[in-house]
């Protein structure tokens, strides 16, 4: 059973301001940024486009566009390899947003298929794909999964505005 809690912003929240400044407490990492070139071959093929990165601890999920077709890709950063996701990508759908649990076992994503925008949960250990309903009805746009893959937050278009729903996947 999926328990859905709608997270509501109170107008009072919008009145909060911080008056502190960062003088003297800011640091700049500019001179010591360390890219990870040993992984670049997995996420920088010149004929492909990569967007919407989502990190687990040692996993990177991205949307990869190759020859006009976009799909979800999962990289095992420790093993330096692309992991197969059987049953996840479909030729008739367009992924919009993806998020991965800390251990790389669960992926939540939003995809457009025909005239429907769907929110789904993929479990690698089982190879299963489950559609999650958004309630009250709305159109999902962007998703974030917690580290354990048991709670997700999803941005939903609803009644002309954007809401964020928090969904607890208690029985999975």
């Amino acid at each position: 059973m999926i328990m859905i809690t709608r997270y509501l912003t109170q107008p009072a929240f919008l009145r909060f301001f911080s008056f502190f400044s960062c003088i003297g407490l800011a640091s700049c990492m500019g001179g010591s940024i360390r890219p990870m070139p040993e992984l670049s071959g997995l996420i920088s093929q010149p004929t492909r486009s990569y967007r919407e990165p989502a990190l687990g601890n040692k996993w990177l999920a991205t949307l990869v566009n190759h020859q006009g077709k976009e799909k979800i890709q999962l990289v095992d950063l420790r093993g330096k390899r692309i992991v197969g996701l059987p049953g996840l990508n479909r030729s008739d759908s367009q992924p919009i947003s993806v998020s991965v649990s800390a251990d790389g076992q669960r992926l939540a994503f939003v995809r457009q298929r025909a005239d429907q925008t769907e929110l789904l949960l993929y479990r690698r250990e089982l190879g299963t794909l489950q559609r999650l309903e958004v309630s009250p009805k709305g159109v999902p746009r962007r998703v974030s999964l917690d580290g354990a893959g048991r709670i997700l937050a999803v941005q939903v278009s609803r009644n002309g505005g954007w809401d964020v729903d928090v969904i607890r996947l208690s029985a999975f």
């Binding site: 107008p11 800390a102 962007r142 998703v143 997700l152 937050a153 002309g160 964020v164």
Partner: peptide, 29 residues
């Protein structure tokens, strides 16, 4: 959503790893 003259604008959600905190983008003034 129209509520008390306020159009809902909550975007770009991000959960902490422990699922206890939520960051999002709101329209503030």
């Amino acid at each position: 959503m129209q509520s008390n003259g306020f159009i809902s604008s909550q975007e770009d959600p991000a959960l902490s790893g422990d699922g206890r905190k939520l960051a999002l983008i709101v329209d503030r003034n």
